[in-house]
Design a protein around this nucleic acid. Structure first.
Length: 260
DNA sequence: ATGGTGGAAGATCCA
């Protein structure tokens, strides 16, 4: 089965592209980020008509996440533990069953954090620590578990075409990368780096300055696998061609295939 | 020196 993540940058503006991609790729589970709408405004029936169950955690104007699945979504949870005051819609988790197996999927939209330093960066780092704690708790369950989403983290220099321009950016600051390493150190596998090939793997190209035409990309969308999910790893891909479609998101879908 | 791109909301913020 295939699990995908895609920051669509507004579901209303991207519904036609999402539909086109779902019909082409037919992933089993899709985590969407930056839907930028309240739950009631999400085009649920259009997506259900394509054969998907839908869970939504949205808010007005900003952020917002959703999970689509060919099989029913159970045990749905919204919001990341650790800050009762946090009202930003950035976390959604659910369990889906396929054949004999089940997988728990968390869809995340990790805070951008710019400008850094500042309160937005503090929020990002706190959010990353909350995510680490949550993942640690989930890993105790020893089940197939995938955390998929827009992490707003460039893990290493090779994850940017021009790493030097990102040195002072919240996506690439040493503290950001240290928090990423602490997350991985729990025993999670970075699926996009789990394949043998070592080439460019970008998932985002800015709308500005011809970034796409110059392949001036970064890898900030990630799928992290629990050991029980990594044991079932079959392959991974980035649907880069979607970035060249008309009126694209600045992110493209990333997909992992698991033997489930 | 300026603006660059796009979305949402509404004339500005966020990415």
């Amino acid at each position: 089965m295939q699990i995908a993540t895609w920051n669509v940058n507004s579901i209303k503006s991207r519904l036609d592209l999402l539909t086109r991609w779902l019909e082409e790729a037919r992933p089993d589970v899709v985590c969407l980020q930056e839907i930028k709408c309240v739950d009631d405004a999400f085009p649920k029936s259009a997506i259900e008509d394509l054969g998907y169950h839908v869970a939504v955690h949205g808010q007005k104007t900003y952020n917002g996440v959703a999970i689509l699945s060919k099989t029913p979504l159970e045990d749905v949870a919204t919001g990341l533990a650790g800050d009762g005051e946090d009202e930003q819609a950035r976390f959604l988790e659910a369990v889906t069953s396929f054949g004999a197996g089940a997988v728990r999927v968390a869809g995340i939209y990790l805070p951008n954090g710019n400008p850094a330093p500042g309160p937005k960066y503090d929020y990002k780092l706190a959010w990353m620590e909350r995510l680490r704690k949550h993942a640690a708790a989930r890993l105790l369950l020893e089940e197939p578990f995938v955390i998929a989403g827009d992490y707003n983290v460039i893990p290493e220099r090779r994850d940017a075409r021009r790493p030097d321009i990102w040195l002072k950016d919240a996506l690439f600051l040493p503290e950001t990368r240290a928090a990423w390493r602490r997350l991985l150190a729990l025993g999670l596998t970075d699926a996009l780096r789990a394949a043998d090939d070592d080439g460019d793997v970008y998932t985002f190209w800015d709308y500005q300055a011809g970034a796409w035409q110059k392949n001036d990309g970064i890898r900030i969308d990630h799928l992290l696998l629990s050991p029980q999910a990594a044991d079932r790893f079959v392959g991974v891909r980035v649907d880069k061609h979607v970035r060249s479609w008309e009126r694209p998101s600045d992110h493209v879908p990333a997909v992992v295939e698991l033997a489930l």
